[in-house]
Design a protein around this nucleic acid. Structure first.
Lengths: 137, 137
DNA sequence: TTTGATATTGACAATCATTCTCAATTAGAT
DNA sequence: ATCTAATTGAGAATGATTGTCAATATCAAA
């Protein structure tokens, strides 16, 4: 019944309010990369008492707790996904806005190497590919 | 006297107003990655009549003309640089905010390959490394 | 050159995403 | 059951950016 994300919140000492439970559920059930408005819409369907201010706050708290990550893809608003142990980058379909996740060890290693060569320890990175479907005919 | 960026603007059919000339000059002389406020400050020193609205507009027009590119590094505002033929990516010093440019053919090729493997033609990409200086002792 | 259509400008209002404020409520420890 | 600190909803405030509009300036054509 209690989701794994809820357990993480308890570990981090976050209070589990009814609003947070709903938002957590929505996040857990989303495998796209929703923005705040979409999270708000989905949460509102389950519980009308959730306000958009709370969605903004919850999303920030969860990110600070290392449970969520946010991305900035082109358009102005932040998009979110649960932080999983398996790191991945994103390919964004420029026609549809669809987001495809991928992971490539070779490119990960290469980034470390580049940073090191410049005298830096890599603490984070952002790699986004923007592409158009190849139509074969 | 007329800068190469000015020539590009003429080619694109953009009118060369005195305000634009000043902004173009500022862009040409900046080798950091200034945001709109900084461009505005630098332009104002040369010509007090330049308004921030015009900086915003000019920057947009120049980007549409393929003369400028904008980046979104972590903080909210857009930062700009003249678009040169030699493509590069960015490493951002997380302590100081300093931006270091680099280019790596291997990683460029790898990105193409990854996109292709997912069925996409790569139209653009964004690679940002966030690092901390390695202090040797 | 002067003219004229059209683009550009400054000032500031409007917008959009996000954060803040504050009084009222609630979770969870005791 | 009680208490304290965290959380909430509503809406105001913020910060970056874009839109509006009347006044002005550019560049092409006469």
């Amino acid at each position: 019944m209690s989701s794994s994300i809820e357990d993480l919140c308890i570990e981090k000492g976050l209070k589990l309010t009814s609003q947070r439970r709903v938002i957590l559920q929505v996040i857990e059930e989303s495998d796209d990369h929703p923005d705040v408005d979409l999270l708000y819409k989905r949460a509102s369907e389950l519980d009308q008492s959730v306000s958009i201010a709370t969605v903004y706050r919850t999303v920030r708290v969860l990110e600070e707790a290392g449970i969520l990550t946010s991305h900035q893809f082109g358009d102005g608003r932040a998009r979110f996904e649960a932080l999983s142990e398996d790191h991945h980058d994103h390919l964004i379909d420029v026609e549809t806005g669809e987001v495809i996740e991928f992971h490539n060890e070779e490119i990960e290693a290469l980034q470390e190497k580049i940073a090191e060569a410049l005298g830096y320890e890599l603490v984070d990175h952002r790699l986004e590919l923007y592409g158009r479907v190849i139509k074969k005919n």
